[in-house]
Design a protein around this nucleic acid. Structure first.
Lengths: 336, 336
DNA sequence: CTGTTAGCGCTTTCAC
DNA sequence: GTGAAAGCGCTAACAG
């Protein structure tokens, strides 16, 4: 393995000078600089990253905790973040919690052992009280998921508004019996959406039938399961608010199978605006989350925090936008 | 920051002893061992990973190069690998090449700077001659993509067979004019599929009309574009072999839009068996690639190579399986 | 401008 | 069994 000493010897200089050239310091004569570059090229020298990390106490790596990469929302978030991080000279260590408290905890240790310079949480499995203990080991920020009492930078979507516009749209289509599907119940993202949902209901003086509440809905299979449940209810809802496009797709698939027409007999609205919304028949109405903006800002805030810039209280909120397609609007009774 | 020295002091022992305990060495008296554990717990000590890496010349990290995480095939591959790597005590550094030669090259440097102990390539953008130069810096293996002249461990699918069974299925349905869509032309994965395709054609004494060849087909949009092209051909194909479920979904979406019935007027077969195949109407016939097996084996081989086990010539090949759904089989003229 | 030197935190001979 | 000491490859005072 070729080290900085080899380069120094080859160039007939000291390793400090070589180091200065590598790190682009001023006060190095052009001549010697060139000599160093030459020696580096000849030897194919690349600085050893562990040695640098140890010395600098910086690894140039940021951990991103996501539930799973395969979840399209988190996949897109991770992908956007990676591109952004590279621009700032950081590697991204993508860590899947697989919805497990233990796995999340294990990943949090990365901060303790200084394997990463900072940590971006896009979801939280453990209680905030346990997560916050890790704050003393390095900068942590929240992106997407959030926590009311957390005093760390947060980059999020306006989920209340998202839940509100989606529900209002359903109501305006004439629906009064609206079902609600959500993923994890602990998630504040989910809770805010629910608040938006309730807000719209209140505004139109509608009440929520508890029988219409469905939880732990994440996947297509969950959507199919929920449809089946709805289908055999004595007094079923006429519309469904879902927490994800996948669940909406599942419900539509179930409906197709049972010959229930969407949106005429059952309107369905998704969340995320994934490609699948345009592939389904009917195309799925949904709420778009501008993921790349969120990712970009999160990385920027993280990079700033690593260099002790910015402050812990900053909160960035991005708006959500309703996208109306076919799964909520019957060509016959279109109102909006 | 609490270091091994702090622990040693607290426990009234030398840091060598503490190190021995951390690394689970024999020849440490039970008593002192306990003392060390106690001190570690009290101080909340976790070994610094950069220091360990520098000393051990091992980072316990493996880089995985994928084109993009959002591509469902590579996303699933990365997810499966991550889970497997964790079991062996390795972190996975997922690197996106974004189909760019330069970005790939940049990631290859990770091996040179010893930021990772090994590298798994799932795709190759640069010429093999330039990639192979990096072999001297650490173990590299191929997973999914492969290279005839490469002398490194390879874990792959039997793409020839995959192309063959899919095409044969189409022919058996009575098709003679079969179009062929593929992604990158340089990819050996694609070339082997093509060989399988040709094999089936030959077997049935059919010839391929060059007008029916489509390249750079990766996404849903590409599928739609290809359909439009086919649709306005004077003598269009009656079936399409695609290199991915997304392209198949795009073609079906295009067909729907133009009122062309699938599979009656145009049969379409996908590749991968992604969830989308079950969501589309008609459901997409496809070729399943058992990704988790591939991922598991790749990680195992990599871990072995890192500890100088196994040999460079090993090649593991996994079979591919045809899954027949609705996009190729008309309920009316079903033959198979 | 450039070189010498002292560590970063850890593991590993080598003595005892 | 245990400790002292050297050193992994690099950067950053500190001299000069």
């Amino acid at each position: 393995m070729v080290t900085i000493d080899d380069v120094a010897k080859r160039a007939g200089l000291s390793k400090s000078t070589v180091s200065r050239v590598i790190n682009d310091y001023p006060h190095v004569s052009i001549k010697k600089k060139e000599k160093v570059f030459e020696a580096m090229k000849e030897l194919g020298y690349v600085p050893n990253s562990s040695a640098r990390s140890l010395r600098n106490k910086k690894t140039q790596m940021i951990a991103v905790l996501v539930p799973r990469i395969m979840n399209p929302f988190f996949g897109q978030l991770a992908e956007s973040m990676e591109i952004q991080a590279a621009k700032h000279g950081y590697q991204l260590l993508i860590c899947q919690t697989m919805y497990s408290k233990e796995t999340e905890l294990k990943h949090l240790e990365l901060l303790k052992m200084r394997q990463v310079d900072g940590m971006i949480l896009t979801s939280i499995e453990n209680e905030w009280d346990v997560v916050k203990e890790y704050l003393s080991y390095g900068p942590m920020i929240l992106c997407n998921e959030f926590e009311e009492e957390a005093t760390i930078p947060t980059v999020k979507f306006d989920q209340i508004h998202g839940g509100y516009v989606a529900t209002k749209h359903l109501i305006r289509q004439g629906h009064k019996k609206i079902a609600y599907c959500t993923g994890g119940q602990k998630s504040n993202v989910g809770q805010h959406r629910r608040r938006g949902f309730n807000l719209a209901l209140q505004e139109y003086h509608l009440s929520f039938d508890e029988r219409y509440g469905f939880y732990d809905a994440f996947s297509i299979e969950d959507g199919i399961r929920i449809f089946k449940h709805i289908h055999q209810m004595p007094d079923p809802p006429t519309a469904v608010f879902t927490g994800s496009d996948e669940v909406a797709a599942g419900i539509i698939t179930g409906a197709k199978e049972y010959g229930v027409s969407v949106p005429e007999a059952l309107a369905v609205i998704g969340f995320d605006n994934q490609v699948i919304t345009k592939l389904m028949d009917p195309k799925i109405s949904t709420v778009e989350q501008p993921i790349p903006f969120l990712a970009k800002r999160a990385v920027e805030v993280m990079v700033d925090r690593i260099s002790h810039k910015g402050n812990d209280q900053e909160v960035y909120e991005y708006p959500l936008e309703l996208i109306i397609r076919e799964s909520t609007v019957s060509p016959i009774r279109a109102v909006e």
